[in-house]
């Protein structure tokens, strides 16, 4: 596997007004490059355009102007805010389907289920699992395809704080095994500091980069590392 860069070139996006909602240009000539193997976190106020950028990289939205390059026909995994599992299929089938669609062996998916702590739960149906377990399945699914790009859309915002902490550590472990290129959208500045190589703080309308913070801390990182608090403080100072 080779990680692929993600490049946003002069991207523009305007949402048309509907009813009382006015027409809004949220992105204009927006440039951003995420290097191969880099994990970049986007933070910023709600509605700033973070998710729009992520959806463009995922192919779920198109830009009005400019271009988003993800290297063509790349293997792309994604972890959503909700696990988005197929509740009528077993845990293992949910993971296998992604592997089948990507044309890779399902063996890695089976190994990953054990790695994420779901050994013995392969035959279970998603609704029989806790929220944290379901998100573990979603992580296993995203990494089962040997991804070149992984997109993370507020992946741990729907679980409790303790589960989120465990899942972040798990994500770090999975990432370190074979780092793909990553784009993380989050409201959690500590999460951004802990996981990312670089944090981009967005602000204004249309959105622009108001701060770019490199996180030059070695991995694996500890959530209790005091250096992370300093980065977290810098991010917060630009957000408030």
């Amino acid at each position: 596997m080779s990680a692929a860069p993600i490049v946003f070139s002069r991207v523009g996006k305007t949402y048309p007004g509907i009813g009382a909602r006015p027409t809004e240009t949220i992105l204009r000539d927006f440039d951003l490059r995420i290097e191969a193997g880099e994990l970049l976190a986007l933070v910023g106020p709600s509605g700033i355009g973070k998710t729009t950028l992520l959806h463009m990289a995922a192919g779920l939205e198109t830009s009005d102007t400019g271009a988003v390059q993800t290297g063509g026909d790349r293997r792309l995994g994604m972890v959503f805010q909700q696990p988005r599992l197929l509740n009528w299929l077993s845990v293992v089938r949910n993971v296998e389907l992604a592997a089948e669609a990507a044309g890779v062996s399902p063996r890695r998916g089976l190994e990953l289920l054990t790695e994420v702590g779901l050994d013995g739960y392969q035959a279970a149906f998603p609704l029989g699992l806790s929220g944290g377990q379901r998100q573990r399945v979603a992580l296993a699914r995203a990494f089962s395809i040997d991804p070149e790009i992984v997109l993370l859309d507020e992946p741990f915002s729907a679980v409790d704080a303790l589960t989120a902490r465990r899942l972040r550590l798990l994500l770090q472990d999975l990432w370190l095994e074979n780092p793909p290129t990553g784009l993380l959208v989050t409201h959690n500045t500590q999460e951004a500091a802990f996981l990312a190589d670089r944090v981009i703080v967005l602000g204004g309308r249309p959105a622009r980069v108001v701060e770019e913070i490199k996180v030059d801390l070695p991995r694996p990182r500890s959530p209790e590392d005091p250096a992370l608090f300093e980065i977290h403080r810098r991010i917060m100072s630009r957000l408030i």
């Binding site: 739960y121 392969q122 035959a123 279970a124 149906f125 029989g128 806790s130 944290g132 573990r136 465990r166």
Partner: peptide, 9 residues
């Protein structure tokens, strides 16, 4: 916190 559910048997 994650072990509240049982395998699908």
């Amino acid at each position: 916190t994650d072990t509240v559910a049982l395998p699908g048997v």
